[in-house]
Design a protein around this nucleic acid. Structure first.
Length: 554
RNA sequence: AGUCCUGUGGUGUAAUGGUAGCAUACAAUGCUUUGAACGUUGUGGUUUAGGUUCGAAUCCUAACAGGACUACCA
C-alpha cells in the first residue's frame, strides 16, 4: 500500500521546477555561519536542504557563510561538520564564502564601473540618519556623487589597508526612497582589520552578507536557496545583485524558523548562556543544540523524525517541547536496552531466601525489537528497590508494596512485604519480605497474582553510578517573549539534579557513550562522555510516560 | 505611520474551488511480568465582515490580529 505523502511548499516548488523543465536537477545548500553551534532549529533546515537532495536526487553543499571575521572560529566549523554527519547527512561539497573573496571583490569593482556602487566616508551614525525611516524616505549625501575613477581608487585603497576601521564603506547605489530599507544604498563592503579564520590577514575589507550570500549561491549554481523568514526583505536585494551582475539566478525561498517551547534558540542567547556559565558549555544536555541533545541521549533518528513531523511552513510557530520528547521516546523504545537501576534505594531482605546464596535471572533486552535476547542479572536475598515503590499506608490504587502486599520483582520472583523497620526519625530503613520460589519469572506455577512489577538490584552485586537528571532549562514556554524582561529571569533553578550514588545492575558497567538504555520504569539514559569505568555517569534523556504520577497530581 | 509576510482543534501541520484529515497533547477504556509500549474510543478547529461561485479554509476586497524591516551581524 502506498500512502500519499503531502509535500511541503518548498518541495512543491522544486517538483514544479523539475516538471516544467526549469531545472534538470536541483542544487541546495546549508549555509551556517561558523560563529556558534548548530541547534534544533538548524536541524529543520538541514533536513529540508539535504532531504530535498535525497528526495529529488539532487545535490546539497555545505557552505560556511564566513564573511565576518569578528565572530567566526575554526572550532565552530569542526563542530558544525560533526553535527551534520551525526544527523546522518552527507554534503556534496564543503565550501566557504571566503573562497569567493577575490570574485566578490571583482564584482564590486564591476558595480563601481557601472556607476552602481560608491565609497562613502560617512560615519555609521550619519549613514543611519540619512537612511530615513520606514515611513520617511532617505537622502543621498555628497559622496554618492563621486566619479567612477575616484571610487575605483578609493575602493582599491580600502583593500590595501590605507584607511582605518569605519573610515569608509562601499555602498550599492539603488534607491534611497525605497519602502524597503534594504534597498536604500545598502553597505556591501566594510573595513575590518581583523584576522579571518581562513584567509588570515590577506583581507582588511569584507563583504556584507547581502553582497556575499546570493553571489555564493550563484557561483555554486544553487537552484533553490532556502533560508528563514527574516531574510524575506532581503530578497529584492538578493535578486538585484544577481541581475546587475548578470550571474546565475538562484531563487531564494523563505520558511518560518521552527521555535521550540521552554528554550531559546538565537545563537546570541545561547552564547550568553555559555559565556555566563549558566550551562556547562555548548553541549550541555539542557541546551537545544544538536551536540547538547546528542549528549543528552537523543538519537539522530529521533531528531530527523521530529523535523519531519513539525514540517515546513511560513507561519509563526512555537512547537511544544513535549513533541520532541515524544520523538525521543518513540525511537528509544525501539533501540534502548532494558536494564535496572535504583535511584533512591530502599533495602529489602528476603527472609526465606537461602543466606549467602545468589542466582542468575534473565532480563529481556528489549521486548520491542523482536529479537528476544536477554542478559543475566544476579538475584539474592538482599536487594534494593525504589523507595517510592513502598508505602506504609498505601491507598487502594497503589499497585506496589505495602504491609502485607505482594509485588513481582521484574525478571525475578513475587515477594510479599511482611514487615518493615524504621530509624529514630521515622524513616523506613528496611523491608522484610518473603519470596515465593515457584513464582519465578517465566516458569511461574504459583498461581499468585501481583499487579505491581518492581525494578531492583542485588545489593552485593550492584555497581554505583552518578545520575544526572535534566529538566527544562526555562520555566516559561517562551522565555524571550516577554517585553521588558530578560530571558534569563525564567531559567529553571532545578534544571539539573544529580544523584551521586545510584545502584545499577552489573551489566551496565560496560555502558559507553552513544549507547541507549531504558532504566526500567524510570526513563531513558545514556552514558555521559565524562563517564569512565571507575566512575560511571548517566544522563537522563527523558522520563518514561508516567500515568500514575499524572493521576496522583489530580 | 509605510512596504512586505502570515492567520485551520491547546500545539504543529495537511486539504492546491468539491467529505476539514494526520500527528501530538488531553480524556476514557482494553491489554500488560515496565502504572511503559501497544490497541480502541472520545473531546476539540478554518480570525471577522462582505463579495465571486452550483459550491470557498482555498479566489477577491476590507477590517482585525501577529510578525519582519529603521546593524559597518548573519
Amino acid at each position: 500500500m502506498e500512502t500519499k505523502v503531502s509535500l511541503n511548499f518548498v518541495e512543491e516548488i522544486v517538483e514544479k521546477d523539475l516538471a516544467s523543465g526549469k531545472h534538470e536537477t536541483i542544487q541546495t545548500r546549508f549555509p551556517p555561519e561558523p560563529n556558534g553551534f548548530l541547534h534544533i532549529g538548524h536541524a529543520s533546515s538541514i533536513c529540508l536542504n539535504f532531504g530535498l537532495k535525497n528526495r529529488f536526487n539532487g545535490k546539497c553543499n555545505l557552505r560556511f557563510d564566513d564573511t565576518n571575521p569578528s565572530t567566526e572560529e575554526t572550532r565552530y566549523v569542526e563542530a558544525i561538520k560533526k553535527d551534520i554527519q551525526w544527523l546522518g547527512f552527507e554534503w556534496d561539497k564543503e565550501l566557504y564564502a571566503s573562497d569567493y573573496f577575490d570574485q566578490l571583490y571583482a564584482w564590486a569593482v564591476q558595480l563601481i564601473k557601472e556607476g552602481l556602487a560608491y565609497v562613502d566616508d560617512s560615519s555609521a551614525e550619519e549613514i543611519a540618519e540619512q537612511k530615513g525611516t520606514p515611513t520617511k524616505p532617505g537622502s543621498r549625501n555628497k559622496f554618492a556623487e563621486r566619479t567612477v575613477e575616484e571610487n575605483l581608487d578609493l575602493f582599491e585603497r580600502m583593500k590595501n589597508g590605507e584607511f582605518e576601521n569605519g573610515a569608509k564603506v562601499l555602498r550599492a547605489k539603488i534607491d534611497m526612497a525605497s519602502p524597503n530599507m534594504l534597498l536604500r544604498d545598502p553597505l556591501i563592503y566594510r573595513i575590518k582589520k581583523e584576522p579571518h579564520h581562513r584567509t588570515g590577514d590577506k583581507w582588511v575589507i569584507y563583504p556584507m552578507y547581502d553582497f556575499a550570500h546570493g553571489q555564493s549561491d550563484s557561483i555554486e549554481n544553487v537552484t533553490h536557496s532556502i533560508c528563514t523568514l527574516e531574510f524575506e526583505n532581503h530578497r529584492p536585494l538578493y535578486n538585484w545583485f544577481i541581475e546587475k551582475l548578470g550571474i546565475f539566478p538562484s531563487r531564494q525561498i523563505e520558511f518560518a524558523r521552527r521555535n521550540l517551547s521552554h528554550t531559546v534558540m538565537s545563537k546570541r542567547k545561547l552564547l550568553q548562556l555559555v559565556n555566563e556559565n549558566l550551562v556547562n558549555g555548548w553541549d550541555d544536555p539542557r541546551m537545544p543544540t544538536i551536540s547538547g541533545l546528542r549528549r543528552r541521549g537523543y538519537t539522530a533518528a529521533s531528531i530527523r523524525n521530529y523535523a519531519n513531523k513539525i514540517g515546513i511552513a511560513r507561519r509563526e510557530n512555537v512547537i511544544d517541547v513535549s513533541l520532541l520528547e515524544f520523538c525521543a521516546r518513540e525511537d528509544l523504545n525501539k533501540v534502548a536496552t532494558r536494564v535496572m537501576a535504583v535511584l533512591d534505594p530502599l533495602k529489602v531482605v528476603i527472609t526465606n531466601y537461602p543466606k549467602g546464596e545468589m542466582e542468575w535471572v534473565e532480563m529481556p533486552n528489549n521486548p520491542e525489537d523482536g529479537k528476544n535476547t536477554v542478559h543475566r542479572m544476579p538475584f539474592s536475598g538482599e536487594l534494593y528497590i525504589e523507595r517510592k515503590d513502598f508505602m506504609e499506608d498505601p491507598p487502594k490504587k497503589f499497585f506496589r508494596l505495602g504491609p502485607g502486599r505482594m509485588s513481582r520483582l521484574k525478571a525475578g520472583y513475587i515477594i510479599r512485604c511482611d514487615g518493615f523497620e524504621k530509624d529514630e526519625n521515622g524513616k523506613v530503613t528496611q523491608l522484610n519480605c518473603t519470596y515465593f520460589p515457584e513464582s519465578k519469572s517465566g516458569q511461574d506455577t504459583s498461581g499468585l497474582k501481583a499487579k505491581g512489577v518492581l525494578h531492583w538490584v542485588s545489593i552485593a552485586h550492584a555497581a554505583k553510578a552518578e545520575i544526572r537528571q535534566y529538566d527544562r532549562l526555562f520555566l516559561d514556554e517562551n522565555p524571550q517573549g516577554h517585553e521588558g524582561k530578560d530571558f534569563k529571569e525564567f531559567i529553571n533553578p532545578d534544571s539539573l539534579s544529580v544523584i551521586e550514588e545510584a545502584y545499577i545492575e552489573p551489566f551496565l558497567t560496560n555502558a559507553e557513550p552513544g549507547k541507549h538504555y531504558q532504566f526500567m520504569r524510570t526513563g531513558y539514559f545514556t552514558p555521559d562522555p565524562d563517564s569512565t569505568k571507575e566512575k560511571l555517569i548517566f544522563n537522563r534523556t527523558v522520563t518514561l510516560r508516567d500515568s500514575w504520577a499524572k493521576a496522583q497530581r489530580k
